[in-house]
Design a binder for these strands. Sequence first.
DNA 1: CCAAAAGTTCGATGTCTGTCAAACTTCGAT
DNA 2: ATCGAAGTTTGACAGACATCGAACTTTTGG
Lengths: 116, 116
Amino acid sequence: MPPHPDIAGVHLQQVLEALVDPVRRQIVRELHAADEALRCGVIDLPVSKSTATHHFNVLREAGLIRQYYVGTSRMNALRRDEVEKVFPGLLALVAAEDHPGAGRPSSGRAGPGGTP
Amino acid sequence: MPPHPDIAGVHLQQVLEALVDPVRRQIVRELHAADEALRCGVIDLPVSKSTATHHFNVLREAGLIRQYYVGTSRMNALRRDEVEKVFPGLLALVAAEDHPGAGRPSSGRAGPGGTP
DNA sequence: CCAAAAGTTCGATGTCTGTCAAACTTCGAT
DNA sequence: ATCGAAGTTTGACAGACATCGAACTTTTGG
């Protein structure tokens, strides 16, 4: 429910910061493929629930996804057309990504506590 | 002179990591606009020379620019067509960027020592 | 030959961001 | 009413990255 920014007002900087994380790109890819809103839990992410919540929030704040509740489930929908209008081709690049392994950052960025 | 990767082998992850930095996008924009190779010094960057060197290296390693020496000057050329072939539309997004202020990261990332 | 110019290398530093665990909230079903 | 499922919130933490200054290399110009 927090604020969904108007994509026209989002800077490329913020969108890139959102998409530079492999986990967040995975989310975008799955939403793109599903072509419909998905529950958070449906997407199998390699991180804890709290971290997942964080990633969804970042995507929302960047104007890439729209979120709304249905019961206790948070639905997530890719803002396809809107994003396409402001950043043409961007989603296609992510959707077409050849996600090797798990799309880990080039310079082994995994954060601490990764998998102790 | 260090290795220039074959762009076809570069992952989207690495390219995004390169382009997420405002300074590096500025470099790409200027090279895009110039449409020819430019000396490092010609591009007026808001960072020290050593930092600039770092940024040019990151861009080269990501396959976005090609570098070669002419005297003591290092020339930098955008690998337009090659990048366009593998990541269509990507350069256009950066080139068309509405660089506000100085394109500082959304979450004030400036690093230490920024402006003491 | 000497000096200036153009970058590079090296080491140090501070901030940011991803990550987790634990406690909490909320809604639906039994 | 109670229990479970689904997420959220709140600290804490560690690793990466951008950044700088100083010293060095190399090439051009006087």
